[in-house]
Design a binder for these strands. Structure first.
Lengths: 228, 228
DNA sequence: ATGGTCAAGCTGCCATGCAAGATGTCAGTA
DNA sequence: TACTGACATCTTGCATGGCAGCTTGACCAT
């Protein structure tokens, strides 16, 4: 179980442990939007006092994952439709820039990783293994962000994507008929442009790719219940 | 006087008051990089207990303004040269996108505000009033961000700019000979493109503008002591 | 003079108790 | 029945005290 990789394997910090745990539960969907998070309940669950729980919740609030209503309670954030659109706009922006930056860096380990990822993804699509493909899509975007070699970009990107709970949305997106093939074809083209060191083209194409993904997700959401 | 506009004028929350106060002190330069922030000292200064101070410091840590070293102390963050470059890269990215988004919105109140701002700035440059011009530059960029009408973009933009302590840097930048005139000319051209609803052009030009500003700042920094 | 050891003092971390605001329930009244 | 008011019971916010880890500087041995 390779987890999100924050800093250290053993963090003597209770608050970080709680924050990491809750974050995973939220972005994985184990905790749904609107769910109440009581300090005392969480404290009992984790077997610690309210103080570190409280600090963890505060951190998650700043990250935009929960909403703390004073003297009322803490709830898992429920992004509005507008916010989801805003988040996709940011995703488009940041990933586009990441493609441009990565293309400018030339031969780096991440490039090989991306080639390998695309090859594996081809196989997964061919085999119709959507679960595996969804994981590879996640990895593709992660490689891209790391390959951009900009810590601030990576940090803010992760925060924004956590708000989207993107892990769930990817499945929604790929559930659209034919989306997997289109998506994989777009990954190919982005990779080609990065290899060709065409930063401008890579940025443009990456933006289109994210926008297509955005539309696929919204279409899938309309099929199911609305986000808010 | 369009101020930063957090939430409420009277917030019964001690932690927010402390966080806001410290944030202002840091971005204004009243607190310099590396300065130690002791929980007990701050608690005494503000006349409250350590708990809300602690929560405020935690918030500032997540915003990247302070660094909490466990069992050691809390210090005002000192961005490395690399981080400053990363921050400018993000600034370029976000403001470029803001220009594009604002251009796409057509006739909005922010457009009038920006016209008015540029006119005032012209006068300030002509009068050689660099203090007034610095303030108008800040306002120009703020109008741009608000005009983009994307809350997520605005939030993350402000966090990143706070890390830069941009208020101080603007003066450094404008101290470069001829920079004020160049800067103002660039603002003019961006505004023209926004009026013409040329989003792509506005984004490209805004990026160039930020990059020029970046160079001016770095040149000014080399003249003074290094950031780190 | 120099290198290593240790103890004191500082720091943030956590647990606990109390206070105050918000919410839902339920009795009382028109 | 519809509505208003008070109250019981949640919730978080703040204050305080004890604890564990890191840093630093003095002191001792070489």
């Amino acid at each position: 179980m390779v987890v999100a990789s924050t800093r250290k394997l053993v963090t003597a910090n209770f608050q970080e442990q709680v924050a990491d745990g809750l974050r995973q539960m939220i972005i994985s969907g184990e905790l749904g939007p609107g769910d109440a998070l009581s300090e005392v309940n969480l404290a009992e669950t984790f077997g610690i006092s309210r103080t570190p729980v409280r600090e963890a919740l505060k951190q998650l609030q700043i990250e935009g994952l929960v909403e703390i209503r004073s003297r009322v309670g803490t709830f898992v954030a429920a992004p509005s439709r507008r916010e989801v659109n805003e988040l996709f706009e940011m995703k488009q922006l940041l990933e586009g820039a990441a493609a441009r930056l990565m293309a400018a860096r030339g031969n780096i380990p991440e490039l090989e990783a991306m080639k390998s990822n695309v090859a594996d993804a081809d196989a997964a699509v061919l085999a119709g293994d959507t679960v595996r493909y969804a994981e590879l899509v996640r990895e593709f975007h992660e490689i891209l962000i790391i390959g951009a070699d900009n810590g601030k970009l990576a940090t803010h990107y992760r925060i924004l994507m956590n708000q989207l709970a993107y892990g769930r949305l990817v499945k929604t997106s790929l559930a659209q008929p034919g989306r997997s093939l289109d998506s994989e074809r777009e990954h190919h083209r982005v990779l080609d442009l990065i290899i060709a060191k065409d930063g401008t083209g890579a940025e443009r194409l990456m933006r289109q790719h994210v926008q297509a993904s955005h539309h696929a997700v919204m279409a899938g959401l309309d099929g199911a219940g609305p986000t808010n």
